[in-house]
């Protein structure tokens, strides 16, 4: 799996994503069910950190966020 596939899987898969939006440093994601989010797997996929607040999960991936978000959208 490439990075985008790993991150999507760790967020609980395409069905769990409400919205995914890139910022300069992170993917801002809203999920249906935050219990399906696997922080360990996100870090294993290369995330520098994960900041969760309810169903909003910010995956810190650095400046490649826009490229990764496009790749994830292509998978969905």
């Amino acid at each position: 799996m490439d990075k985008a596939e790993q991150i999507l899987a760790a967020l609980g898969g395409a069905d769990n994503i409400v919205e995914i939006e890139p910022c300069a440093t992170r993917l801002r994601t809203e999920v249906h069910d935050s219990s399906l989010v696997d922080e360990k797997a996100l870090k294993a996929a290369g995330a520098f950190g994960v900041i969760s607040a309810g169903t909003v999960v910010q995956v810190v991936v650095g400046p490649e966020a826009d490229t990764i978000a496009t790749d994830i959208e292509d998978l969905m």
């Binding site: 939006e21 910022c23 300069a24 400046p63 826009d66």
Partner: peptide
């Protein structure tokens, strides 16, 4: 200028150092 958003940009130097400048918080 390797990444350029309206509110943030990354400059990579000739020897590969990347510097991010982020204008404000949540400005995306």
């Amino acid at each position: 200028m390797v990444k350029l958003h309206p509110h943030a940009f990354v400059i990579q130097t000739a020897d590969g150092a990347g510097v991010l400048t982020h204008l404000g918080i949540d400005t995306v």
